[in-house]
Write a protein that binds this DNA or RNA. Structure first.
Length: 430
RNA sequence: GGAACGAUGGCAGAGCGGCCAAAUGCAUCCGCCUUGAAAGCGGAAGGGUUCACGCCCCGGGGGUUCAAAUCCCUCUCGUUCCGCCA
C-alpha cells in the first residue's frame, strides 16, 4: 500500500510517479482515494470531538454522584445520551468510509523507483548484462526441446502427472527428480552464508496473502482451500514476508535475511495455452527464495547483492544467461524496482525467466505492518522488503536438459550439482 | 472432535464499571554515589492518528451503559485433560 499521507501532501507527485506505469485508470483510482480520504478526515474530526464531549460529561456524572448532586448527574447523563446517538451515526459512517478507502488503496500499485526505466511493456525492458556464456551456435543435439528428450530418457513423466492431478502438473523421475532436488540444495547452500533457512507453512490465511499484495486483486491466480479459508502459497515470499508482520523490530536486527525452499502453487488463470509444454509453466513447482527486511538505506545495496547472488548460482551451472531490468510498464504491482535473470534454452529456442529480484520499498511492509525502531529516534518507521528467486527449479532444470544434452542423447550433469547426485555424473541415454 | 481454564506494557504479573495508558517486580536508559563495578538512591521510558487540542489502542469483532481492561455475545489463539492420529 502506498502512504495515504503522501497522497494528501503531494498528490501531484504521486500522480506523476504512478502515471509512469502507463495505466490511465490508476489516476482515477487516485482521485477516488483522495476524495474518500478528505471525507474521512472530516468525519473523524467530528466524531472525535463528540467523543471528547461524552468523556467529559461522564466525568461530571461521576463527580456529581460523589458530591451527592443527583440532579446534576441526571442532566449530564441526558445530554451525554443525546450526543452518544450522534456519535454512533458518525462512527458508523467513519467505519464505512475507512473500509472503502482501504479497499481502493489495496488496489493501487506501488510507485516505481525514480531509477526504474520508463517503458510501455516487456519489449522496453533494458538489457543490463549479457548474454553471458552464449555460444555462437548450437549443435543439432541441443536443439531438442526438453519435453521430448527428458521424456525419452524416462526422467520426465508429465503424462502420468496429468493422470494424477490434471493439466499443467509435472513429474520428474529417477535422476531427473534427484537433479530437481539438487538444484534446491545448491541454491540453499549458496546463500546459507548470509540467509537463515526457514521451513514455513505452505498454506496461509487470507490476511497473509493480502499482506504481500496477491489479494484482493489477484485472487484468481492462487489456489484456495475454501472450506478452511486457506490459500496455497504462490511463492515463499508470502510466508517469509509475513514472518515479521505486525511486529516492531530493532534497527540492529536489520537487514533480516531469510531463505526458504518451498513448493509454489499457481493457477495460471489466463495463461492457458501459453508456454504450457514441458516444464515452462506449471501449477506446482519448487523454488528457493531469498528475502530481506531492511531499512530504506540498506535496501538499494541489498537489491544489488541479491541479484548478484541469483546470478552467481545460474552462472555456476554454466548456463547461457542475461539480466534485464523491468521497466515501469511491465512491473508487478508491488514492485519498486525489479531485475530478471533469463536463461537461454536452445531446445525450445527461448529465453526463460528463471529469477526475479525485486525491491518493494515500504509497499508490502505497510500492508503487513512491519516496522522498525531507530535507537536515536522516537516512534517507528515502516521497513522495506526485498525478495528474489535464488533458483526456480523447472525452467533451470529444462535449460540444463537442453544445454547439456550430448551427441549420444545423455545429459551431462553440471559440476556444481555433483555433490548432490549420489555419484551420478550423467543422466545416461537409453 | 469433546471439556475446562486463560489472553493486560520488552518479560512476569495486579487490576470493586468511573480516581486506569494502567500498580508492582525484573529487564532497559539517564543521573547521583564509587578508582571502577555491584548494591543503594533519584529520574526517564508503549503505539497509532492529528499543525494542535484531542481521539483511539488492555488478543480481534460486536453489544450493554452517561461511562468498559473490568459485564454480555462471538471469533481467534494458547494451556491442560479426553478422543483420534502420520
Amino acid at each position: 500500500m502506498i502512504d495515504v499521507r503522501l497522497l494528501r501532501t503531494d498528490p501531484a507527485g504521486v500522480r506523476a510517479a504512478l502515471a509512469r506505469r502507463g495505466k490511465p485508470e490508476l489516476l482515477e483510482q487516485l482521485d477516488h482515494a483522495s476524495s474518500l480520504d478528505a471525507r474521512l478526515l472530516k468525519i473523524t474530526g467530528e466524531r472525535d470531538d463528540l467523543r471528547r464531549q461524552v468523556n467529559e460529561l461522564s466525568k461530571i456524572v461521576g463527580q456529581s454522584r460523589k458530591a451527592g448532586d443527583m440532579t446534576a448527574a441526571e442532566v449530564a447523563m441526558t445530554e451525554s445520551r443525546d450526543l452518544g446517538e450522534t456519535e454512533r451515526v458518525l462512527a458508523a459512517e467513519h467505519d464505512e468510509l475507512s473500509e472503502a478507502l482501504r479497499q481502493v488503496m489495496l488496489r493501487i500499485p506501488n510507485l516505481p523507483s525514480p531509477d526504474a526505466p520508463d517503458g510501455a511493456g516487456e519489449d522496453d525492458n533494458p538489457l543490463v548484462k549479457g548474454p553471458v556464456n552464449l555460444p555462437n551456435s548450437f549443435p543439432d543435439h541441443q536443439r531438442v526441446p526438453h519435453w521430448e528428450s527428458a521424456t525419452a530418457l524416462g526422467i520426465l513423466d508429465n503424462e502420468r502427472a496429468t493422470k494424477i492431478s490434471g493439466a499443467m502438473f509435472t513429474m520428474q523421475r529417477g535422476l531427473g527428480a534427484t537433479m530437481a532436488r539438487a538444484l534446491c540444495q545448491l541454491a540453499l547452500d549458496n546463500n546459507a552464508d548470509a540467509f537463515e533457512e526457514i521451513r514455513p507453512p505452505q498454506m496461509v490465511t487470507t490476511a497473509t496473502l493480502t499482506a504481500t499484495g496477491q489479494l484482493p486483486k489477484f485472487a484468481d491466480d492462487a489456489f484456495a482451500i475454501e472450506r478452511d479459508d486457506l490459500w496455497a502459497i504462490p511463492t515463499a515470499e508470502v510466508p517469509l514476508t509475513s514472518l515479521y508482520a505486525n511486529e516492531i523490530l530493532d534497527e540492529a536486527q536489520l537487514p533480516a535475511r531469510l531463505m526458504a525452499h518451498t513448493s509454489c502453487f499457481r493457477r495460471e488463470a489466463g495463461s492457458a495455452g501459453r508456454d504450457t509444454r514441458g516444464m515452462l509453466r506449471t501449477h506446482e513447482f519448487d523454488k528457493v527464495e531469498i528475502l530481506a527486511v531492511a531499512t530504506p538505506e540498506q535496501a538499494a545495496d541489498l537489491l544489488t547483492e541479491m541479484t548478484a547472488r541469483a546470478e552467481r548460482t545460474i552462472a555456476s551451472l554454466g548456463l547461457p544467461y542475461r539480466i534485464i531490468e523491468i521497466c515501469t510498464g511491465d512491473m508487478g504491482q508491488s514492485h519498486y524496482r525489479s531485475f530478471d535473470i533469463e536463461v537461454y534454452a536452445p531446445g525450445c529456442d527461448k529465453w526463460l525467466e528463471v529469477s526475479s529480484v525485486s525491491w518493494f520499498s515500504d509497499y508490502q511492509a505497510r500492508r503487513a505492518d512491519i516496522r522498525f525502531r531507530r535507537p536515536d529516534k522516537k516512534g517507528t518507521e515502516i521497513a522495506h522488503t526485498l525478495n528474489g528467486s535464488a533458483l526456480a527449479v523447472p525452467r533451470v532444470w529444462a535449460a540444463i536438459i537442453e544445454n547439456n544434452r550430448q551427441a549420444d542423447g545423455s545429459i551431462r550433469i553440471p559440476d556444481v550439482l555433483l555433490p548432490y547426485m549420489r555419484g551420478a555424473t550423467v543422466i545416461p541415454a537409453t
